[in-house]
Design a protein around this nucleic acid. Structure first.
Length: 339
DNA sequence: AAGACGTGGGA
DNA sequence: TTCCCAAGTCT
């Protein structure tokens, strides 16, 4: 299927398309997961600017890496990048084969294949959800079977794939994003039309399973004292080793509400996966050292961070938004009541 | 093997 | 505003 290669090469190339540096290809593949092209266009260049090499990451801290990843979500990926950078600094890149790369944390079958074909020109088929859908349509089947992959490569042309797997892998993904989409197909422009059993016939729709949403209320306090804001390090779970504004239980939050200097900020909604969180931020401005002691019971577990340095710590997005509005825009939209 | 893991952006 | 989506991996 020379047609696939020709079609791919006729597209406007992505800025990083022809970079074969294993480090950059690795970052590119990890960052691409579960995100959109517009996010990539913004974040990939800035990442490379912050961390131009494996060594630059290995020389940083995990917190620095999480900060650079902030806003991209799925933060385990950033922790893995840090782990892998240190490993590679010591041992070098893995051998260019599937089993060696699969040993790296966060590198699964898709990512390993994509890196090996892009950076090392190894003929592995990188099967992501797009390619999976294309394969199912090509063969006109309604369930996926890994055995189809070898047949698919044969259909593409084994010799051609051995030589041009990088372009063909990338071409297939672009195809899945543009012509052979989940809910929309444009077969007449498809380079694979000749070999497709489902041509013109949309099928293999992923049935989206509706998840039941779980609502959660979170009560947080922003304790401000001189130049400092108290923040809390997340020890486990979502956002591990990142920071948040301190969460307290409702009872305590209510008692803080009555403190002098306390003002209620507008509530925030933050949804992800199956959760719908409502954040209730309470801003407490403490002017006297004596008053600070009234919060000893919680502040002793917290970190006093200079307001000017809050941007140096990695925060989960929902908290970052509140912090930015509080410090940046004068909190105009944030405050419920005028002071 | 179903569920967890996050977010910004577009309709 | 609200809903829904987007280059997976791990357990």
């Amino acid at each position: 299927m020379q047609e696939l290669i020709d079609w791919f090469q006729s597209l406007e190339p992505l800025p990083w398309q022809n970079d074969r540096d294993p480090y950059k290809v690795y970052i590119l593949e990890i960052m691409s997961q579960q995100t959109t092209l517009s996010v990539m266009m913004k974040r990939y260049p800035s990442w490379i600017s912050t961390f131009p090499s494996i060594d630059s990451i290995a020389a940083a801290s995990e917190e620095d890496v999480l900060l650079a990843w902030e806003g991209l979500g799925y933060y385990q990926r950033a922790r893995n990048i840090y782990t892998i950078a240190k490993f590679i600094k010591e041992h070098g890149f893995p051998e260019p084969n599937l089993s060696s790369w699969l040993q790296l944390p966060g590198v699964g079958r898709y990512t390993a294949a994509a890196i090996l074909s892009r950076a090392y020109n190894k003929p592995y088929l990188a099967v992501d959800v797009n390619v999976k859908r294309i394969i199912m349509r090509i063969f006109g089947v309604s369930s996926y079977d890994q055995g189809l992959e070898e047949k698919f490569i044969a259909l593409l042309g084994k010799n051609l794939f051995d030589k041009y797997s990088s372009d063909m892998n990338q071409g297939l993904i672009r195809l899945g994003q543009s012509l052979c989409k989940k809910k929309e197909i444009i077969c007449k422009e498809c380079p694979l039309m000749k070999i497709c059993k489902s041509a013109g016939n949309i099928s293999c729709l992923n049935v989206s399973t509706k998840k039941t949403i779980e609502r959660r209320d979170k009560y947080l306090v922003i304790i401000s004292f001189n130049e400092y804001i108290y923040i809390e390090k997340i020890e486990s779970g979502v956002g591990k080793n990142m920071y948040r504004l301190p969460l307290v239980d409702y009872e305590l939050w209510q008692t803080f509400l009555l403190e002098p200097g306390a003002s209620l900020l507008s509530k925030r909604k933050h949804s992800y996966t199956k959760y719908c969180d409502y954040l209730y931020p309470l801003y407490i401005e403490i002017k006297e050292m004596e008053l600070l002691q009234r919060f000893d019971n919680i502040t002793k577990h917290l970190i006093a961070c200079n307001k000017k340095k809050l941007h140096e710590r990695p925060f989960l997005s929902s908290y970052r938004i509140i912090i930015d509005e509080l410090l940046g825009g004068g909190g105009k939209d944030l405050f419920l009541e005028d002071q």
